[in-house]
Amino acid sequence: MIRLALISSSETAKIYSGLSTRLHRATWTVFAPLDSSDLSQALGSSAKVTSTDDLFSQETAAFDAVVIDADSATAESVAKTVVDLGKPVLVGAISQWVATIGEANALLMPAHPWRFIPSIQAVKRSVDDGKLGVPGLLRIHRWHPSSPGKAPISERLMPDVDLACWLFGDTPESVWSLQSAANEDYLQFHLGFTNGGMAIIDLSASLPSGGDYYSLTMIGGTGAAYADDHHNMNLLYSGGQPNAIRTNQGHIELVQQLQEFVDVIDGKREQSISLADTFRAVQVVEQVLESANSCEVVKREESK
């Protein structure tokens, strides 16, 4: 049984707590909250609650591996400490600092939970199995509600940039971005892959408070896949026009990701996401932002 420590906000801890019975060969033993909420029961009564400093100075014997779900700055400092301890770590919000991580003496698995979403997994399988043929066009719409506490644009771009590179199995040779003068929370970008492959993605964080929207279409040479929230809406009648309500898919992506982390530690499977994947996505995100700022097409170095 692998003993896991969690470093996250208290709200996030509640989500991870709900996953504990679905994990195989792992259990939460320590929780280091990043805020001051009372979370003595957050990860179950058996988990110790301590500060991040105490976790690393006094509780190192209480855990075998660490899961970090935090903002980029916190993730960077905490992840480096865990790596120095020689313990495996699953960490999200990796951004430019990925380049500063040297040869780690322990497993460092970057968290890309978007890859583990059931619909995305199904699309990826259909690509890998050759059902769709050669990928030709990836179209993504990702719209979030407006929120004062939203993540920086570079973090919000990461999932779809990574998905594009992952699904095409390549780094784009050209990047073109388009901003909206009327909406600072809108960005559209256009990725060109070798052999004519293309991805066009728009990201918005300006919907009214409430639900978000996601749609991914992958068009291949012999087939196509459509993962679209629009297809998964039910109707609620409560007077007036009916409301569309999306079928809840829970947090399966987090379960799948955690289980892979555990399985990799156990030696039961290969790590599917590498730091090189993260590094590639970070670089493309930088190119997307560079194109948005310069209003120029950004070309990959070797394709210039």
Binding site: L137, L178, S180, Q188, I200, I219, G221, T222, G223, A224
Partner: peptide
């Protein structure tokens, strides 16, 4: 206003 268009004759199987 910004916009985009994706278009293709993607085959009957798709």
């Amino acid at each position: 206003i910004v916009g985009s268009l994706c278009i293709g004759r993607i085959g009957a199987a798709s």
